[in-house]
Structure formats: C-alpha cells, structure tokens
Design a protein around this nucleic acid. Structure first.
Length: 449
DNA sequence: TTTTGAGTTGTTCGA
DNA sequence: GTCGAACAACTCAAA
C-alpha cells in the first residue's frame, strides 16, 4: 500500500472530511500540518492558543501521528512527500486568493506528485451559486434564496479506522498561557459539544437574543468553522435532523449563508481582499499622520472613552473574539468617527481574531465602510452610546471588560461622563455628534454630490 | 428591452 | 416615552 499525505489546513477534523477520505482511499495516510512561521509570529496569543489546541486535539485523534513541520508550504510539502514516497497529497480546497496562490505554488513544486483537491470549507462551494445567466450575485438576499434551493451534501462518514503513516515531526506549537482568561475551547470534540448545547438550548431564541453581547446566546462556531474543526454542512444537517423550525433556526441558517456568500464574492473578485468592492468611494479622504495614529492606538487598545467600543476592543485582545454586534459598532467608530480607512481596521482584526476569515472579515468591514456589496445607505452611522444602551441594556458587558467602570451600576455605565469620570478611564477621544456630520460630509464629497 | 420592487444589522427629529 | 418620516439616489434581480 502506498502513502498518501493529507495536508491539514482549515479542516482540522476527522469527521465529515471528504479530502481525508480521499487520502485514505489512496493509501496509508500521513497527516501533515505546515506551520508558517510568518503567520504564527503575526497572530495574537488567543489565536495561537486556539490553533495550538486544535493541533494537540488532532494529534491525539490520530493516535499521535500528526506531523507538524515549520516553513513555507511550497518547500515543506514536497520535501515530506519525498521523505515518505507519497504518490498524492490531499487537501480541502482553499478558495481564497492567498490560498489559491499558495496551492498553485505547492502543486508546481510537487512535480509528479498529484495535489488532489476535494471539497471546500463551505456548504456550497464558492462559484457554484449563480444567476440564470451564469453571473455571480451581488446582492445577498437573492443569493440566499438560490443557495437554500440548491441545498448541500450530507456529511461524509467518519472513517472507522485509518492506517496512519509515520515520519518524524517537529514539536507541536506550544499554546501560550492566557492567564486564566476564559476562551473558546479548541478542537473537534469541543466544537461538537458547544454546538450540541447551542442546538438543544439556544438556537430557538437566536433571532431575539443574538444581538446581546452580555449574554452567551450565539453559537460561537466562527472559529471552529474557520479552522474546520466542524463543517457547516454538519451543522445544517443537525439542524434539519433536530426537526426545529422557526425564526431562530432561519436566522442562524442565514448567518451560515452569509459566510458562503462572502466566500463566493471573494472567489469571483479576489482583488477585494484589498481593494474596494465598489470603487465609487476610492476618492475618499482619511485622517492620517501622528494624530490619526494616536486615535488608532486608542481604538485598538480600548481607550477611546466610549465604553461599548472599549469593552469590545478589550474583549478582542483578551479572547481573540468579539460579538458580531460589537464588531459593527467598533468598525463604524473607526471608519466614521475616527475617519480611518476600513483596511486598517480589517488588518488589525485579522491579526487578533481567532476566527479571522479573509472573506467574512473583509466584506464585513466593507459593509460598514459602504464600499461593499450592500446598497449601504450613506446615513448609516452607528451611535456607540445608543448601540450600547440598546444591546447591553444592563451594562454587564461593559463592566466585564472595563474594570475601571465597575463602580457604575446599571446602564449608566454607558455614559460615565454624566457623573464623575472614574480614575484611569479616558475622556472621549471625539465628539460623536460632530464626527458624524464630518463623516456624512466626507461621504457626500467622495461621491461627488 | 423595459419595468418594477427591493436592498441585514441606523439615527434623529418632531409630532 | 413612542412612533413615523426623513435622510438619496442607485443598482440589482427577476418578471
């Protein structure tokens, strides 16, 4: 029997993994993960913690056979293939621009060894859903109708037993100590456990409760979906099998569809990883220079003087995750109160988010900035105080992440300037009402109106 | 080709 | 406190 490599990337699981099954059909499987030092160095501690945990779990699930190598994939993968005499290397397709480029480079470097792509990290592979004339959708809602009609495959079976090949591994990366901060538990088993709880206890109320950052009401599947410790079609199948219907289930499925939609958009327009999807606002002016850098630093470290913004940014640094409602609020603040280009915020998010996904992150930011797929009314400027009061109505979220404000009870914590500002908590860096006007003006000018 | 209805997530102001 | 209107005009998708 020959050896086939399964190169794990964003499919760090054994269940429902068609590419792994394909490798298994081709021979003894060498499970390989390539750790790119450049990416590791750039990641925040929570992200490292999660990835290291997923790899440890995978190591255990493969009875200690997981092979980790450090270096550039186009060097490492062919080298390992030569070492074990592999005839093929199996992967789950990466449909993002960097992934596509990397995989093409690896394919070339592999020479006679075949690189076999099976499946994708999405319920429906990017590029599949099109309009009748074959063109891609540019608007979410019609895409989502077509997506639901299209349907998706049932999960692939988990292999009963796999014959693992063996070769020397470098050390698995060490998970940094997060000082007791409670973060998302890594690994395939943890993903399933968390998912079961959500499906059994929370999904029914998801539509009502999903905007509450103070409560634990979301599925927390984003990082698991990103690293592939679970596949979306598994979630969709479980939802269908549960027999549940209603707005909670509908809204959750819609969120999974958003993930597919943005991946589809990026597939058709790979340059939007950097550039504006809608170039109309290319002429926009931004704050730059030392003062802008100070503002950015205040934003990034949670020192803006706006409690909701600060709590959210500190949650990101501590946990590598931020509630989606809060992502919109802090993004709007950077773009429309601090007048900085969305790309700067998107880059920062990607470094720190455990679930940092190029397609979702970039297009989420573009949505906020008004450069993306949404029609985006120019007047949509989030008020960080109003949003805080509305979605963190008791102020619990703020107090959890901003210790300086713990002395203020109830929702008053969203407006600490109304009383005596607690020691150590900053004054507001801007006047929101004023900056809103400035932003509306900038947008009007950029559109030439 | 033309027409028509619709487009994730908001805020403010005045009645 | 609550509620509806105004805040622009345009592009997309489908009939």
């Amino acid at each position: 029997m020959s050896t086939a490599i399964h190169w794990f990337r964003r499919d760090l699981r054994l269940s429902d993994n068609p590419a792994l099954l394909a490798a298994r059909d081709a021979g003894d499987v060498l499970p390989l993960f390539v750790l790119d030092p450049a990416i590791w160095e750039k990641s925040g501690d929570p992200r490292r913690h999660f990835l290291a945990g997923c790899l440890a779990a995978l190591h255990e699930a493969t009875d200690g056979h997981l092979v980790v190598r450090h270096g550039r994939p186009e060097d490492v993968v062919p080298a390992v293939a030569r070492e074990v005499g592999a005839a093929s290397v199996h992967i789950t397709a990466d449909t993002g621009p960097y992934g596509r480029r990397r995989d093409t480079a690896v394919e070339k470097a592999l020479g006679d060894v075949e690189l076999v792509r099976t499946g994708s990290p999405y319920a429906v592979a990017p590029g599949t859903i099109t309009k009748d004339d074959g063109a891609p959708f540019k608007v979410f809602t019609p895409f989502s109708r077509r997506w639901r009609d299209h349907g998706w495959h049932d999960p692939a079976p988990r292999p009963r037993s796999t014959s693992w090949a063996r070769v020397d591994s470098e050390d698995l990366p060490e998970a940094p100590d997060l000082g007791g901060t409670e973060v998302l538990e890594p690994g395939e088993a943890a993903a399933r456990k968390r998912w079961r709880t959500f499906l059994d206890e929370r999904i029914a109320d998801y539509d009502d409760q999903r905007n509450r950052p103070d409560l634990d009401t979301t599925s927390r599947m984003s990082a698991h979906l990103h690293f592939g410790t679970v596949h979306p079609r598994t979630l969709l199948k479980d939802i269908a099998d549960s027999g549940q219907t209603g707005t909670g289930v509908d809204t959750y499925v819609t969120e999974l569809c958003w993930r597919d939609f943005y991946a589809d958009v990026l597939w058709h327009r790979p340059e939007t990883a950097r550039e504006y999807y809608n170039p109309e606002l290319k002429g926009m002016t931004y704050s730059t220079g030392p003062h802008a850098d100070e503002d950015f630093e205040a934003w990034a470290t949670g020192q803006t003087g706006f409690p909701a913004v600060d709590a959210a940014m500190r949650q990101l640094l501590a946990e590598g995750w931020m509630h989606n409602r809060m992502r919109m609020i802090v993004a709007s603040f950077l773009v429309k109160d601090l007048h900085q280009e969305w790309t700067r915020g998107a880059r920062y998010f990607m470094q720190h988010l455990v679930d940092g996904d190029l397609a979702s992150n970039n297009h989420g930011w573009q949505w906020v900035a008004g450069t993306g797929t949404d029609a985006s009314p120019f007047f949509r400027v989030f008020n960080p105080v109003t949003q805080g009061l509305k979605f963190d109505p008791d102020g619990d979220y703020v107090r959890r992440y901003v210790p300086e404000l713990r002395g203020i009870a109830g929702k008053a914590v969203h407006e600490p300037w109304k009383g005596e500002l607690p020691e150590g908590y900053p004054e507001r860096v801007v006047d929101h009402k004023h900056e809103r006007e400035v932003a509306l003006d900038r947008y009007a000018k950029a559109r030439g109106r």
